[in-house]
Design a protein around this nucleic acid. Structure first.
Length: 328
DNA sequence: ACTCTGGCCTGTGGGC
DNA sequence: TGCCCACAGGCCAGAG
């Protein structure tokens, strides 16, 4: 179940394999994986064939490959009719979301099809590099589609990239910057957080407020910050908001350093190797096990699992007490 | 305008 | 052994 650090691992791995290569073949083995592409399968394939990948960019868990020089006519109704915008910037991008179980794998043509192979892209040959980029997805919560590149609303870069552009893939434009984005603004986040009338975890999971935080890292960040998931956002003090954001960032950086997290072997990075950060989790998946922070202080406490938002929430009842009257 | 629920998916595993 | 159901959860459409 890839979260932001895993997607960043994929981005970094992928860019050296695909940048500058041309898509010479597209095979869609399961059209359900192209479901968000409104103009249909033919348009999807036509937009990719002959296009050259310029970069691999990420914001939150959205990952996209800006494309140039496609011979396909009138992509997405763009009157320019081509891949290149007026300032020679990419006009469209191949967007990928890994969902719950998506993988992007570089493979040799001889490698047997994966059980849940959904899309196969053939790339122009390059010495010592696999010729296929494959999208594999068991649960089909993820998918691929082509989207237009649009200017960002703050003039900053669209996302993390080797060559940042003031453009963003249209389908990701509504997503807030993530905590690993150098252009992330804490002031903006805190201002919007205080206006919400909801619980802290729900806010952390809202990709429009801050992107890239999923259920696992939300639980970890809250545990590290010693805050309860139901804490009302409109009572959060600035220091508390800074703490939980900094903890989310720290969990992500730890996971990144470890090469990503893997829980059920569904997630592997672009080269096929699983991460191992799951051994370092303090809250998620540790129901009934001792809270390590309390244990270190000589206090006996066990991690509790509760249903919240149709998800599991893991907390320590001692060091993350449920808020009373909106505060501790 | 904001908040929140339901539904999309399939493989795994526990209960009977 | 085999059937059934709960569970995993990011994201969005649509209800409230």
């Amino acid at each position: 179940m890839p979260e932001l650090p895993e997607v960043e691992v994929v981005r970094r791995g992928l860019v050296s394999w695909v940048r500058g290569r041309t898509i010479t073949g597209v095979e869609v083995l399961d059209p359900r994986s192209i479901r968000r592409h409104a103009l249909g399968l033919e348009d999807f394939i036509g937009n990719l064939l002959g296009a050259t990948v310029m970069d691999v960019v990420r914001r939150g868990k959205f990952l996209w490959l800006p494309l140039v020089d496609s011979p396909a006519a009138q992509p997405l109704g763009d009157p320019a009719g081509g891949r290149v915008g007026p300032d020679s910037s990419p006009a469209v991008a191949l967007m990928a979301h890994l969902g719950m179980s998506g993988q992007l794998l570089m493979q040799d043509a001889a490698a047997p099809d994966e059980k849940h192979l959904k899309v196969r892209l053939q790339l122009s040959p390059r010495e010592g590099m696999p010729e296929q980029l494959r999208f594999v997805d068991q649960r089909i919560f993820g998918g691929l589609f082509v989207t237009a590149m649009v200017p960002t609303d703050d003039g900053g870069p669209g996302g993390l990239a080797e060559t940042p552009l003031p453009l963003i893939a249209g389908e990701a434009a509504h997503i807030a910057r993530d905590p690993l984005d150098p252009a992330f603004s804490f002031d903006l986040f805190y201002r919007r957080l205080r206006k919400r009338k909801t619980g802290l975890k729900r806010a952390l999971l809202d990709q429009g407020l801050v992107s890239g935080i999923g259920n696992i890292y939300a639980d970890e960040a809250l545990w590290r910050a010693q805050l309860h998931y139901a804490r009302p956002t409109d009572t959060l003090r600035r220091g508390e908001a800074e703490r939980v954001l900094e903890c989310a960032r720290a969990v992500m950086l730890d996971a990144l350093a470890a090469g990503g997290t893997s829980f059920d072997s569904l997630y592997v990075n672009v080269n096929g190797a699983s991460g191992y950060f799951d051994r370092s989790l303090n809250a998620y998946g540790r129901e009934g096990q001792p809270c390590e922070r309390c244990a270190a202080a000589g206090i006996h406490s066990t991690i509790r699992r509760e249903q919240f938002m149709n998800r599991s929430s893991h907390t320590c009842p001692v060091c993350q007490p449920r808020p009373r009257n909106g505060r501790f």
